[in-house]
């Protein structure tokens, strides 16, 4: 088992009232899973994803990741954990505008103490794998949205994470580009990467092996 959420609650206090973002979430994710999270706006999809990605905390419940209880871990430990095992893909790609494709790919490795030569090899490998060698010296602004997201996925994958968390990865793409990214995800999943994606699109959700519906912070 990769991760397990038990009775997760998350809330914020607004105007003297407790507003629940997540309510009693129970979820088990095995290695090799491909989960699609769906639900209307404000139902807590992104919050759930962030909690799983350890970017966000929660108020109540337990969270175990690879047999470690995340809720009791120190911040630093938690950071090493997600640095090593989790990769993120965003709707608006979040590439650094000032860096080239190649540099964008290299960036996460800089923070993981890989040697220069290793980094180069890994970046080259990734460029190859995604067929974007010819674009390695371009800046994000010079790429189409689909190409940018391709780089985004490549960046998420570069340090060999076990889990990819994708927040509406196709939200800014047209249907053709969406299709490509989804097929890529499926391919990766076959290769053993666990994927959890948030999506609005019924069609894209179908790529997942499992679909979770959220409404007002609750799984339905």
């Amino acid at each position: 088992m990769l991760l397990e959420l038990k009775n997760i609650f998350k809330w914020v206090n607004s105007g003297g009232q407790r507003v629940f973002l997540l309510k009693d979430i129970n979820l088990k994710v095995d290695e090799g899973d491909f989960i699609s999270i769906m639900g209307p706006s404000g139902s807590g999809k992104s919050t759930l994803l962030n909690v799983m990605g350890m970017l966000d905390g929660f108020n109540e419940g337990e969270y175990n990741f690879l047999e470690q209880s995340v809720h009791t871990l120190k911040e630093k430990k938690r950071a090493t954990l997600y640095k090593e095992y989790i990769g993120f893909v965003f709707q608006s790609y979040h590439l650094l505008d000032e860096l080239t494709v190649q540099e964008n790919l290299e960036m996460p490795l800089l923070y993981k103490k890989f040697k220069g030569s290793e980094r180069k090899a890994m970046v080259a490998d990734m460029l190859d794998r995604f067929n974007i060698v010819g674009k390695k010296d371009l800046f994000p602004a010079q790429l189409s949205g689909g190409q940018q997201q391709l780089v985004g996925v490549a960046r998420a994958l570069i340090a060999n994470p076990k889990l990819i968390l994708a927040d509406e990865p196709t939200g800014n793409l047209n249907s053709n580009q969406s299709e490509e990214i989804m097929q890529l995800f499926q391919q990766l999943n076959k290769e053993g990467v666990t994927i959890i994606q948030v999506t609005h699109s019924e069609k894209n959700a179908q790529y997942g092996k499992r679909i979770i519906q959220l409404l007002d912070g609750r799984m339905v």
Binding site: L55, K83, L95, L96, E98, M107, P108, Y111, R155, A159
Partner: peptide, 15 residues
Amino acid sequence: KEIGIRKVNGASITQ
């Protein structure tokens, strides 16, 4: 935004 991206990709506070 840049800080956020870098942090998500593993940059520490010192970095």
